[in-house]
Amino acid sequence: DVEEQIRRLEEVLKKNQPVTWNGTTYTDPNEIKKVIEELRKSM
């Protein structure tokens, strides 16, 4: 579920933690925001 994935990513973003997405680890909050944007567009 895309909305659930977005929620999880936003939680990680709030905690300022790195997130691994599709085999890539993002540590930059701006990169994580881009991933969230892409997910929103795909909905």
Results as ranks from 00 to 15, higher is better:
residue 42 S to T: 14
residue 26 Y to P: 00
residue 2 V to N: 04
residue 10 E to V: 07
residue 5 Q to Y: 10
residue 43 M to E: 04
residue 5 Q to A: 13
residue 5 Q to M: 14
residue 29 P to V: 08
residue 17 Q to H: 09
residue 23 G to P: 02
residue 30 N to P: 03
residue 39 L to M: 06
residue 13 L to W: 07
residue 31 E to I: 06
residue 32 I to Q: 00
residue 11 E to M: 09
residue 20 T to C: 13
residue 24 T to F: 11
residue 6 I to S: 01
residue 37 E to H: 07
residue 25 T to C: 10
residue 37 E to I: 08
residue 22 N to D: 09
residue 20 T to M: 13
residue 33 K to G: 06
residue 10 E to I: 09
residue 9 L to I: 07
residue 12 V to W: 11
residue 21 W to Q: 03
residue 13 L to E: 02
residue 13 L to A: 06
residue 28 D to S: 07
residue 26 Y to R: 00
residue 6 I to G: 00
residue 43 M to H: 06
residue 21 W to M: 10
residue 18 P to F: 05
residue 30 N to D: 14
residue 22 N to E: 14
residue 26 Y to D: 01
residue 11 E to W: 04
residue 41 K to E: 08
residue 22 N to I: 02
residue 33 K to M: 14
residue 25 T to R: 03
residue 1 D to S: 13
residue 30 N to C: 10
residue 5 Q to V: 15
residue 16 N to L: 05
residue 29 P to T: 06
residue 14 K to R: 14
residue 14 K to P: 03
residue 9 L to V: 03
residue 35 V to H: 03
residue 23 G to Q: 02
residue 43 M to T: 07
residue 28 D to F: 03
residue 42 S to M: 15
residue 40 R to W: 07
residue 42 S to R: 10
residue 30 N to Y: 12
residue 33 K to A: 12
residue 3 E to W: 15
residue 13 L to K: 02
residue 39 L to G: 00
residue 22 N to L: 11
residue 8 R to H: 13
residue 19 V to E: 03
residue 14 K to E: 13
residue 3 E to T: 08
residue 29 P to W: 05
residue 28 D to A: 04
residue 8 R to D: 05
residue 20 T to S: 13
residue 4 E to Q: 10
residue 30 N to H: 12
residue 35 V to T: 02
residue 15 K to T: 15
residue 18 P to S: 12
residue 41 K to N: 12
residue 41 K to I: 10
residue 3 E to N: 07
residue 34 K to I: 07
residue 10 E to L: 12
residue 16 N to S: 08
residue 31 E to D: 13
residue 34 K to T: 07
residue 29 P to G: 05
residue 12 V to N: 15
residue 9 L to Y: 02
residue 42 S to D: 05
residue 9 L to E: 00
residue 1 D to K: 08
residue 28 D to T: 09
residue 16 N to A: 09
residue 4 E to Y: 12
residue 24 T to D: 06
residue 37 E to K: 05
residue 41 K to C: 05
residue 31 E to Y: 04
residue 3 E to C: 10
residue 21 W to K: 02
residue 18 P to Y: 06
residue 17 Q to R: 07
residue 27 T to Q: 05
residue 26 Y to F: 09
residue 38 E to I: 12
residue 32 I to M: 03
residue 5 Q to S: 10
residue 37 E to R: 06
residue 33 K to V: 09
residue 23 G to N: 04
residue 32 I to W: 03
residue 17 Q to N: 05
residue 3 E to D: 07
residue 21 W to E: 02
residue 6 I to R: 01
residue 40 R to G: 02
residue 20 T to Y: 15
residue 14 K to N: 11
residue 30 N to G: 11
residue 21 W to L: 12
residue 22 N to R: 05
residue 37 E to G: 05
residue 32 I to K: 00
residue 35 V to Q: 03
residue 22 N to H: 07
residue 37 E to D: 13
residue 18 P to C: 11
residue 9 L to K: 00
residue 33 K to Y: 12
residue 20 T to D: 14
residue 11 E to V: 05
residue 15 K to S: 15
residue 7 R to F: 06
residue 23 G to S: 03
residue 38 E to M: 15
residue 36 I to A: 01
residue 1 D to W: 15
residue 10 E to N: 05
residue 6 I to F: 03
residue 22 N to A: 07
residue 17 Q to A: 10
residue 1 D to C: 12
residue 31 E to V: 06
residue 21 W to R: 02
residue 1 D to N: 13
residue 25 T to K: 04
residue 4 E to I: 07
residue 36 I to H: 00
residue 32 I to L: 08
residue 9 L to R: 00
residue 22 N to Y: 10
residue 1 D to T: 13
residue 33 K to D: 03
residue 8 R to Y: 15
residue 34 K to G: 06
residue 23 G to A: 02
residue 1 D to F: 12
residue 38 E to T: 11
residue 32 I to T: 02
residue 30 N to Q: 13
residue 43 M to K: 05
residue 37 E to W: 06
residue 18 P to M: 09
residue 9 L to C: 02
residue 24 T to N: 08
residue 27 T to L: 05
residue 19 V to W: 15
residue 17 Q to K: 08
residue 23 G to E: 04
residue 22 N to F: 12
residue 37 E to P: 00
residue 3 E to Q: 12
residue 3 E to K: 10
residue 2 V to Y: 08
residue 24 T to E: 11
residue 15 K to P: 01
residue 32 I to G: 01
residue 41 K to V: 09
residue 29 P to F: 05
residue 20 T to L: 13
residue 31 E to F: 05
residue 23 G to T: 01
residue 27 T to D: 09
residue 10 E to Q: 07
residue 28 D to L: 04
residue 8 R to C: 12
residue 28 D to Q: 06
residue 2 V to R: 05
residue 12 V to Y: 15
residue 35 V to L: 15
residue 33 K to L: 13
residue 31 E to S: 06
residue 15 K to H: 13
residue 34 K to E: 07
residue 24 T to W: 06
residue 14 K to A: 14
residue 21 W to G: 02
residue 9 L to S: 00
residue 24 T to A: 08
residue 24 T to L: 11
residue 34 K to V: 07
residue 34 K to R: 11
residue 36 I to M: 04
residue 35 V to M: 10
residue 33 K to F: 09
residue 8 R to V: 14
residue 13 L to G: 02
residue 35 V to P: 00
residue 42 S to L: 15
residue 27 T to N: 09
residue 11 E to S: 08
residue 21 W to P: 02
residue 31 E to Q: 08
residue 5 Q to T: 14
residue 17 Q to G: 10
residue 24 T to Y: 09
residue 16 N to P: 05
residue 32 I to C: 01
residue 41 K to W: 10
residue 7 R to V: 05
residue 35 V to Y: 04
residue 28 D to Y: 03
residue 5 Q to F: 14
residue 35 V to R: 02
residue 6 I to V: 05
residue 1 D to A: 12
residue 43 M to S: 05
residue 35 V to C: 04
residue 7 R to N: 07
residue 25 T to L: 14
residue 23 G to D: 05
residue 2 V to Q: 06
residue 18 P to L: 05
residue 20 T to G: 03
residue 24 T to G: 03
residue 6 I to M: 04
residue 34 K to A: 13
residue 12 V to C: 15
residue 33 K to C: 07
residue 18 P to A: 11
residue 4 E to H: 08
residue 26 Y to A: 00
residue 23 G to H: 02
residue 25 T to W: 11
residue 1 D to Q: 11
residue 25 T to G: 02
residue 20 T to Q: 14
residue 10 E to D: 04
residue 41 K to P: 01
residue 6 I to H: 01
residue 29 P to N: 04
residue 36 I to Y: 02
residue 24 T to P: 00
residue 34 K to M: 11
residue 15 K to M: 14
residue 32 I to R: 00
residue 43 M to G: 05
residue 42 S to W: 13
residue 39 L to W: 03
residue 9 L to H: 00
residue 26 Y to N: 00
residue 2 V to T: 10
residue 35 V to E: 02
residue 19 V to K: 01
residue 39 L to F: 03
residue 22 N to W: 09
residue 16 N to W: 14
residue 4 E to P: 02
residue 40 R to T: 05
residue 9 L to Q: 00
residue 1 D to E: 13
residue 40 R to S: 04
residue 26 Y to Q: 01
residue 17 Q to F: 15
residue 22 N to V: 02
residue 22 N to P: 02
residue 5 Q to G: 05
residue 12 V to I: 13
residue 21 W to T: 03
residue 37 E to N: 08
residue 3 E to Y: 14
residue 40 R to H: 04
residue 30 N to W: 13
residue 2 V to S: 04
residue 18 P to R: 04
residue 7 R to D: 03
residue 20 T to E: 15
residue 43 M to R: 05
residue 40 R to D: 01
residue 28 D to C: 04
residue 39 L to C: 02
residue 26 Y to I: 11
residue 19 V to C: 06
residue 34 K to S: 08
residue 39 L to R: 01
residue 18 P to K: 10
residue 19 V to T: 04
residue 29 P to Q: 06
residue 27 T to K: 06
residue 11 E to A: 09
residue 10 E to T: 09
residue 38 E to R: 09
residue 7 R to K: 09
residue 40 R to V: 05
residue 10 E to P: 00
residue 11 E to F: 04
residue 20 T to P: 02
residue 13 L to M: 12
residue 28 D to G: 04
residue 16 N to E: 07
residue 2 V to C: 07
residue 6 I to K: 01
residue 12 V to R: 14
residue 43 M to V: 10
residue 41 K to A: 14
residue 13 L to S: 04
residue 1 D to G: 12
residue 21 W to H: 11
residue 31 E to M: 10
residue 12 V to L: 15
residue 36 I to S: 00
residue 38 E to D: 11
residue 14 K to G: 09
residue 4 E to R: 08
residue 3 E to G: 10
residue 2 V to D: 03
residue 12 V to K: 15
residue 2 V to A: 08
residue 16 N to I: 03
residue 24 T to V: 15
residue 10 E to W: 08
residue 42 S to E: 08
residue 2 V to P: 07
residue 13 L to C: 05
residue 39 L to Q: 01
residue 34 K to W: 10
residue 16 N to H: 10
residue 31 E to W: 03
residue 18 P to D: 06
residue 21 W to D: 01
residue 19 V to G: 06
residue 2 V to K: 06
residue 6 I to T: 01
residue 39 L to N: 00
residue 9 L to W: 03
residue 22 N to T: 02
residue 24 T to K: 14
residue 11 E to L: 09
residue 31 E to A: 09
residue 4 E to M: 11
residue 30 N to T: 11
residue 12 V to G: 15
residue 39 L to P: 00
residue 43 M to Q: 11
residue 33 K to I: 12
residue 13 L to N: 02
residue 8 R to M: 15
residue 41 K to H: 12
residue 30 N to V: 13
residue 36 I to W: 03
residue 4 E to S: 09
residue 37 E to L: 10
residue 24 T to I: 15
residue 26 Y to L: 14
residue 38 E to H: 11
residue 5 Q to W: 15
residue 2 V to M: 11
residue 9 L to M: 10
residue 10 E to M: 12
residue 12 V to H: 15
residue 6 I to W: 03
residue 26 Y to W: 04
residue 27 T to R: 04
residue 9 L to F: 09
residue 23 G to C: 06
residue 2 V to L: 13
residue 38 E to V: 09
residue 13 L to F: 07
residue 17 Q to W: 13
residue 16 N to C: 09
residue 15 K to W: 13
residue 8 R to E: 11
residue 19 V to D: 03
residue 14 K to F: 12
residue 42 S to N: 09
residue 21 W to I: 15
residue 18 P to Q: 10
residue 26 Y to E: 01
residue 34 K to Q: 11
residue 27 T to G: 04
residue 9 L to G: 01
residue 31 E to L: 08
residue 34 K to Y: 06
residue 8 R to I: 15
residue 14 K to Q: 13
residue 32 I to P: 00
residue 23 G to W: 01
residue 31 E to G: 03
residue 43 M to A: 07
residue 29 P to A: 10
residue 29 P to D: 03
residue 36 I to F: 03
residue 2 V to W: 11
